[in-house]
Simulated scan of single mutants.
Amino acid sequence: MSTADHQANHDVVKHSERHEGPQKHIIVFIFSIILTAIAFAAVSAGGVNAAFTVILLLVMAVLQVLVQLGYWMHLKDRGHLMPILFMIGGFFVAGTAIVTALYWVWW
């Protein structure tokens, strides 16, 4: 195989990869803005049950974190299993520390 054939073959493989354009990023950015607007509206609206507002804010926060991790930190892409596993382990350790601290303080 000549150098020119190898270069042409490399270019074909290189261009066949799917490039994620800015369209998804714009859609995800708008979705993040909508989630933030819903959270602000829930807090600023008077007469809404406080428990409902807290639950809505927690749901909006979880959705926001998933969107941020999935699209802006690219954890939805292939090859990111180890960072995901380490984050799950970190959440487990942090949750255990919080529960232990609360148990220790209130016992």
Rank of each mutant, 00 (worst) to 15 (best):
M1A: 05
M1E: 14
T3S: 05
T3F: 11
A4S: 10
Q7C: 13
N9R: 10
H10I: 09
H10D: 07
D11T: 08
V12F: 09
V13I: 14
K14L: 10
S16R: 05
E17G: 14
R18T: 04
R18E: 05
H19Q: 09
G21K: 02
G21R: 04
G21Q: 04
G21H: 02
P22F: 13
P22E: 02
Q23H: 13
K24W: 15
H25D: 07
H25E: 11
I27W: 11
I27C: 14
F29H: 06
F29A: 10
F31T: 09
F31A: 14
F31Y: 12
F31E: 10
I34W: 15
L35V: 03
L35M: 14
L35F: 03
L35R: 04
A37L: 12
F40P: 01
A41C: 13
A41K: 14
A41L: 15
A42Y: 02
A42T: 13
A42C: 12
A42M: 08
G46N: 14
G47E: 05
G47K: 07
G47D: 08
N49M: 03
A50W: 12
A51L: 06
A51E: 04
F52G: 15
F52V: 08
V54M: 15
I55L: 07
L56K: 01
L56V: 01
L56F: 05
L56A: 10
V59S: 03
M60E: 07
M60P: 00
A61M: 12
A61D: 08
A61H: 06
V62D: 01
L63D: 03
V65P: 00
L66W: 07
L66V: 11
Q68T: 06
Q68I: 05
G70S: 08
G70Y: 03
W72Q: 13
M73A: 13
M73E: 13
H74W: 03
H74D: 03
H74G: 02
L75W: 09
K76D: 13
K76E: 09
K76N: 14
K76P: 04
D77A: 14
D77P: 02
D77E: 11
D77F: 08
H80I: 00
L81S: 13
L81R: 07
M82Y: 09
P83G: 08
P83L: 02
I84T: 04
I84Q: 06
I84D: 02
L85W: 05
F86L: 11
M87D: 10
G89L: 03
G90E: 07
G90H: 09
G90V: 03
F91C: 15
F91Q: 03
A94S: 10
A94M: 11
A94Q: 05
A94E: 04
G95Q: 01
G95T: 03
T96F: 02
A97K: 00
V99M: 08
T100M: 04
A101M: 01
L102P: 00
Y103E: 01
W106P: 00
